[in-house]
Amino acid sequence: MAAQTRARTYYATWGALLVLTGCTMAASSLTRGRAEVALTLLSSTAKASLVALFFMHLAQSRFMLRAVLVVAAAFVAILVALTAADVALRPPVPVLQPKG
């Protein structure tokens, strides 16, 4: 770790995480269906970014480490989204019946 994070940064991160947790619950009770999924997951990603940047010190890490993590997160998103899209959009598989 290059520079040392100040204690104040940790308290601010924690405060932001609690505020976002409250926002997530509010968003979840005010919306339904797809909007709710999108809003709560967006909020989770905001929280996860705060944890990674400040608690896990990615904000002060080497560029390569940050690049590796951003790319990894992008590939996880692709894996989840495309697999779910495949399941959602695929037409029903015709059941093969033996002839005769």
Binding site: M25, S28, T40, L41, S44, K47, A48
Partner: peptide, 13 residues
């Protein structure tokens, strides 16, 4: 960090 994703998937949405 993992829990931050598990929480909405099982409790919120």
């Amino acid at each position: 960090l993992i829990w931050l994703y598990l929480w909405p998937l099982f409790y919120l949405v």
